[in-house]
């Protein structure tokens, strides 16, 4: 278990402060990768940086402010990351927000925010990252979407729509640029116990962020374009995608 630096890859991470991002960033730090953390609050980023530093001595090269609600911050944050890291090899986006369908249906302002953060602005951020990675001859872009985007379903009509769009974009990116050295990885978590899902009733196959992180890391290492985590969700979604519409209309999931 001794952290053995295998690579010392240069990683830009948006979303390492909490949840699955925190777990994945720790695995990267333990392996000896070097990270630049992007996020909304300088003090909170500093605390996460300290934590990662304890997991891997050289783990954090710097932090930069970046808010998915403010696209103007994207380019400057990525430039700052490129400056402190020297180059960008892996860009991870695990930032995102969630709200239950019932809440969103009564709150158009929140709906607009969620669609902006999880769809429009995530794409705009990825576009900035894509350009920089391609300019360097390639690299890996790993983005957290969701199983919620795999099928139109009652409980996730709005959130799921944003994630469907995101998954769609990530797949296209992978088709278009893989030959140029840009590997795009779309992560589709099922239900995972994090702050985002705290208080929600967990379905069967609920996962832990650490297990998801291990799976995602393997996908990054292998350049797999699509990863379901926990793994059982691949089969679950396979079934759900295959259900006829009249069945989906009757069920509540």
């Amino acid at each position: 278990m001794n952290p053995q630096p295998v690579a010392s890859r240069k990683v830009v991470f948006l979303g390492a402060t909490r949840g699955m991002g925190r777990a994945l960033a720790r695995l990267l730090a333990e392996r000896g990768e070097v990270l630049c953390l992007l996020g909304r609050h300088a003090e909170d980023l500093a605390r996460s940086a300290a934590d990662l530093q304890a997991h891997g001595a050289q783990a954090v090269a710097g932090t930069a402010l970046c808010d998915l609600e403010q696209p103007a911050t994207f380019a400057s944050a990525l430039d700052e990351a490129a400056r402190v890291l020297g180059r960008l090899e892996l860009v991870v986006v695990s930032a995102g927000i969630f709200a239950p369908q019932e809440v969103l249906e009564h709150d158009p302002a929140l709906t607009a925010r969620l669609l902006a953060v999880d769809f429009t602005n995530t794409l705009l951020f990825c576009e900035e990252a894509r350009k920089r990675l391609l300019a360097q001859g390639g690299g890996t872009l790993c983005v957290f979407s969701s199983v919620a985007g795999d099928r139109g379903r009652k409980p996730v009509a709005l959130y799921g729509a944003a994630k469907a769009g995101l998954s769609h974009y990530l797949e296209s990116l992978d088709h278009k640029y893989r030959a140029q050295g840009l590997r795009t990885i779309c992560v589709k978590p099922g239900f995972v116990h994090t702050g985002m899902t705290a208080g929600l009733k967990a379905p069967p196959f609920a996962g832990e962020p650490e297990d998801v992180a291990r799976r995602v890391l393997r996908a990054i290492d292998r350049g797999e374009p699509l990863v379901y985590a926990p793994g059982a969700w691949r089969a679950v979604m396979g079934v759900i995608r295959a259900l006829p519409r009249h069945v989906m209309r009757r069920v509540d999931f």
Binding site: R18, R22, R47, A50, D51, A54, H55, T194, G195, A198
Partner: peptide, 9 residues
């Protein structure tokens, strides 16, 4: 349990 960061070691 989610507040589990090491702040210095």
């Amino acid at each position: 349990p989610l507040a589990d960061r090491i702040l210095s070691f």
